[in-house]
């Protein structure tokens, strides 16, 4: 948590292409559900540096989930549209926890 808001990290390999799309999708999802949150968009390599207070990592890239203290959700569905509703629900569950 940061300033009373959930802190969500959105990451991809370069922090430039797919994370931009996922950042927007998560922002809209939160807004639609009246959830206040703060998003940090970064490269996956930078995630450890932002780990303090992070509640969730949403990522499109290769990741070793056991490395992190917070839940990790694959954002592939935001790119392919396949299984989108399920992933949105998974994210909402974490944000409303």
């Amino acid at each position: 948590m940061k300033n009373g808001k959930k802190l969500v990290l959105v990451a991809c390999g370069t922090g430039i292409a797919t994370s931009t799309v996922v950042n927007d999708a998560v922002t809209k999802l939160a807004k639609k559900n009246n959830i206040q949150l703060e998003i940090i968009q970064c490269k996956i390599m930078e995630v450890p540096g932002y780990s303090d207070g992070a509640d969730l990592l949403v990522t499109t890239t290769v990741v070793d989930k056991s490395k992190y203290k917070f839940p990790v959700i694959s954002a592939r569905a935001f790119l392919t549209g396949i299984g989108l509703e399920k992933v949105e629900n998974e994210i909402l569950v974490e944000l409303q926890r």
């Binding site: 922090g15 430039i16 292409a17 797919t18 931009t20 799309v21 927007d24 968009q41 935001f78 790119l79 392919t80 549209g81």
Partner: peptide, 22 residues
């Protein structure tokens, strides 16, 4: 293959690209 100069300035373009994929 994408060549993008700056972060975050390509949102609508990238969204369209992924819309095409979907």
């Amino acid at each position: 293959m994408l060549a993008l100069k700056e972060n975050n300035e390509h949102l609508s373009m990238l969204q369209k690209l992924f819309k095409i994929f979907q």
